[in-house]
Computed example of a mutant assay.
Amino acid sequence: MMDAQALPAETAGREFAFEMRDFRVIARLLYDTSGIRLSDAKAPLVYSRLGKRLRTLGLSRFSDYCKRLEGPDGEAERGVLLSALTTNVTRFFREPHHFEALRTQLRSGLVQAAAVGGRVRLWSAGCSLGHEPYSMAMCVLAELPDAARLDIRILATDIDPMVVQRARQGIYTRDDVAPVPSDLAGRWVVEEAGQVRMHPAVRELVSFGELNLHADWPMKGGFDAIFCRNVAIYFDEPTQQRLWGRFAQRLAPEGRLYIGHSERAETPVLRSDGLTIYRRADA
C-alpha cells in the first residue's frame, strides 16, 4: 500500500497538488455514497477525471476540493464527483445471449400473462445511457407489439442523474445503434431531423429514474427480470452479497436475474439458470 502522504508517481509535478490523503477522502466518500470501492492504484484515475472539475472551480489543490466535498454544501458536489468517477461503458444488445434468454422468458409465460391483463415488470438496474433498457424494450415489442397498451413496463435506474437525463432522450449515433439486430432496427430505430432516435413505442415502455443501489429502494412488487450487469464488479464482497440478497427478494417467483459476464452471484438465495442468469433458490 502507498504511504499515506506520498504523491502518486503519475501525478507528481502536474497541475494540481494531490496527496494520498486527498485520494482516500474521495475514495471514502465514493464508497459511502455508492458502495464503489477504489484501490490506491486508482489514484491516477481520480486525478485525471477530476482535474477538469478543479480547473472549473478555480482550485489548485485537491485538499481544497475535499473541503468542498465535506462542507455544508457538499451534497451537490458529491453528485458531480459521482458522475466523474463512475464508468458508463455500454452498448445495445451487449451479451446477446441475455436478450435471447429474455425473449424465451417472455414467450414462456410473460406474454400470455400480459395479454390477459397480468402485471409484467422488468428492471434495468444500472441503466447507464439507456442502451440496455431500450434493448429490453425492443425484445418485448418483438414478442408483443402492442405492449404499450398492456400492463408491461421497464424500470431503468442509475445512480448518475446526468446519464439518466441523457438516456431518457433516447438519442444516439449510427455507430451506437449498429449492434441492434436488423429486424428490430428496421422497426424501432428511427431518424428524426438528422438524429438517430428510439421509436416512441420503445421509449413509452421505459421509465427512467435516479436510484442508488446502496440506499433504499422505493419500488413495490416483484420483477420478472432484473438486469444488473457489470455493476457489482465495482463493489467489495460484502456489498455484492447484500446486493444479490436484495435482488433475490425483489424477483417474482419465476423471475430471472441477469448479471455481467465477469460476475458470479455465489449466494444461497440464488441458483444458476444459465450463463450469468439466476433465479430465486426457493422458486
Rank of each mutant, 00 (worst) to 15 (best):
A252N: 14
G221H: 07
W188I: 09
F99C: 00
A148Q: 13
S207W: 06
S135Y: 06
V190D: 03
A115D: 06
A178P: 00
M219L: 00
T33S: 14
V111D: 00
G35I: 09
D236M: 07
E204D: 13
A113V: 00
N212I: 06
I26W: 09
T239H: 06
R107A: 15
Y31V: 04
A142C: 02
E204G: 15
F92G: 06
R166E: 13
G35Y: 09
E132N: 05
A178C: 00
Q165V: 04
P133I: 10
A114E: 11
R279S: 05
D183Y: 01
P268I: 06
Y278I: 12
R21D: 09
E77S: 14
C66A: 05
A156V: 07
G35R: 11
D236E: 14
D22G: 15
R187C: 06
D22P: 13
V80E: 15
P179H: 01
V89F: 02
F16T: 12
P253D: 03
V269E: 04
C127W: 10
A283F: 05
C139S: 13
Q105R: 14
E70D: 10
V80P: 04
A265L: 03
L29T: 14
R168A: 13
F16D: 08
G118M: 07
F93L: 05
A232Q: 03
A248P: 06
L45Y: 02
R55I: 01
M136E: 04
N212E: 04
V46F: 08
A41E: 10
R28A: 13
A193L: 08
E77Q: 14
M136A: 02
V231I: 11
P161Y: 01
